[in-house]
């Protein structure tokens, strides 16, 4: 492995990741601030969320991140076939996340709960839907990585594109790891 003093992947994605994390950070801060002023409402509404499903989703994303790590490791050992398989596995995990989350959304909507129901749900839907779209985006990027892996575009020496996709995916995962306790658990 090469020595370097730059983060893995393309530097441009890190500028993007910084921007994304700032948005989430502001969102989280605003959530905390608003919650502090409406503790009862937030606690009460929080109980209607399905924590088990969210836990499953947390594990799903962490697992998918692990698969992505394996994918990068595989390409470094010049094993493009394994790399491809690991990415597909990660994508399937991403898909599972989306399905579970959609099920949750469907449940809320069937109960007539939406973005405008109250302040808690405003944050709940905004944050999770914003994150949901990030998972989708991450999957699009990983899919592009998979195609390129298949085409033999990555080598042990040069697989910046894959590292870039992996970095983004880890960010998406990390945001959820903050989001999960913040919205579903913390009281």
């Amino acid at each position: 492995m090469k020595n370097r003093n730059t983060p893995p992947g393309d530097l441009a994605i890190w500028i993007f990741i910084m921007a994304e994390l700032s948005v989430f950070a502001i969102f989280f801060a605003v959530y905390a601030f608003t919650r502090a002023n409406n503790v009862e409402l937030f606690n009460e509404s929080q109980l209607t969320l399905d924590r088990n499903l969210a836990l499953i989703n947390t594990l799903t994303l962490i697992t998918s991140s692990y698969f992505v790590v394996r994918a990068v490791a595989a390409i470094r050992e010049n094993n493009a076939k394994h790399c491809f398989n690991w990415i597909i596995a990660a994508l399937l995990m991403g898909l599972l996340f989306l399905l579970v989350k959609s099920y949750e959304y469907n449940h809320h909507y069937s109960e007539g709960i939406n973005l405008r129901t109250n302040k808690f749900y405003m944050f709940y839907f905004s944050l999770t839907f914003f994150h949901f779209m990030h998972v989708l985006m991450g999957m699009v990027i990983l899919a592009a990585n998979a195609i390129k892996t298949r085409a033999g575009n990555y080598t042990p020496e040069n697989h910046t594109g894959l590292e870039t996709g992996a970095s983004y995916w880890h960010m998406v995962d990390m945001v959820w790891i903050i989001l999960f306790p913040l919205i579903y658990v913390m009281r």
Binding site: A19, V23, I26, F27, V30, R116, M122, F123, S126
Partner: peptide, 14 residues
């Protein structure tokens, strides 16, 4: 809807 106050503030702050 009120949620634009949050979405608008956060993104336009950037």
């Amino acid at each position: 809807p009120e949620y634009w106050q949050w979405w608008g503030s956060i993104f336009s702050a950037m």
